[in-house]
């Protein structure tokens, strides 16, 4: 499978020695702790932990910056409006605009929170291949059918993307240029419709092939990963960090 080929070619980082389940659970735990932190110093420390993890996973600076830009982009509209629109007491008045100090404070907290969360998730989760994540989710107790749908989708996205590319090439060869008009909407409608038709027809064929082979709702999830001593260490460290941070935030 294509996704596995990527797996084999990828560089092995120290984080890859962990059981994928440890990575997923640790990431969720750390981010949940971040959401409840209020102190800037602790959030700053979390930012540094995130950067260390990113370095440890060997993720390029460019990728890190791109990820950060993406999450901050979400805040842009809120941000421009926040200090201007918030009804908290203003501290600077510039003509019709009034900047509010509490609004700015919240804004800084939020940026720190979002950036550190992104920096934690990027090395722990985004470095995973979809198949590894799917298997880990299955072993964490997600319903087998759901995991099956996930693993199938990974496989078929590649195939359907090739199909989509062919359809799109055909449209372009006929001189299709997307624009903000009804013609584009109709063309995209037919494009998506045709993609859906092909997907359903393919699903029927896949279904028949699977039933021929006696599929009964699940495939075995084979993995060499074991919850070992490294995982106990990493999990302990994550719990310690979360515990200390939460305690320090209270006092």
């Amino acid at each position: 499978m294509a996704a596995d080929a990527i797996d084999a070619a990828a560089r092995i980082s120290p984080l890859d020695r962990l059981d994928t389940r440890t990575r997923v659970v640790a990431a969720v735990l750390l981010v949940l702790a971040l959401v409840s932190l209020r102190s800037w110093a602790l959030l700053g420390a979390a930012l540094i932990v995130g950067l260390l993890l990113t370095k440890l996973a060997g993720i390029s600076t460019r990728q890190t910056i791109r990820r950060l830009m993406h999450v901050e982009g979400f805040l842009l509209i809120l941000f421009v409006a926040l200090p201007l629109l918030t009804r908290l007491p203003p501290f600077v008045e510039i003509g019709p605009l009034s900047l509010s100090l509490p609004g700015l404070e919240r804004a800084v907290t939020l940026v720190l929170r979002i950036s550190s969360a992104a920096l934690v998730v990027l090395p722990l989760i985004s470095g995973l291949t979809p198949i590894r994540l799917g298997h880990a989710l299955g072993r964490l107790g997600l319903p087998a059918r759901l995991v099956q749908v996930f693993l199938f989708a990974i496989r078929y996205i590649e195939l359907l993307r090739a199909e989509a590319r062919r359809l799109h090439d055909a449209m372009r060869l006929r001189g299709f240029v997307p624009g903000t008009n009804l013609h584009t909407m109709r063309s995209y409608g037919h494009f998506i419709g045709q993609l859906l038709v092909r997907a359903v027809e393919r699903a029927e064929r896949v279904n028949e092939a699977m039933r021929c082979r006696g599929f009964a709702g699940r495939f075995p999830l084979v993995t060499l990963e074991r919850f070992g001593i490294v995982d106990i260490g990493a999990a302990g460290l994550a719990c310690l960090l979360v515990g200390v941070a939460l305690l320090m935030d209270r006092f």
Partner: peptide
């Protein structure tokens, strides 16, 4: 989700995944 729905749901999920990455010019 029955056994037979697994491929179909997965394939439709794949289509929606691809279709939602289509950029519509505005």
């Amino acid at each position: 989700l029955g056994d037979r729905d697994i491929p179909q749901t997965a394939l439709l999920a794949a289509v929606f995944f691809i279709a939602s990455s289509l950029a519509f010019p505005l």
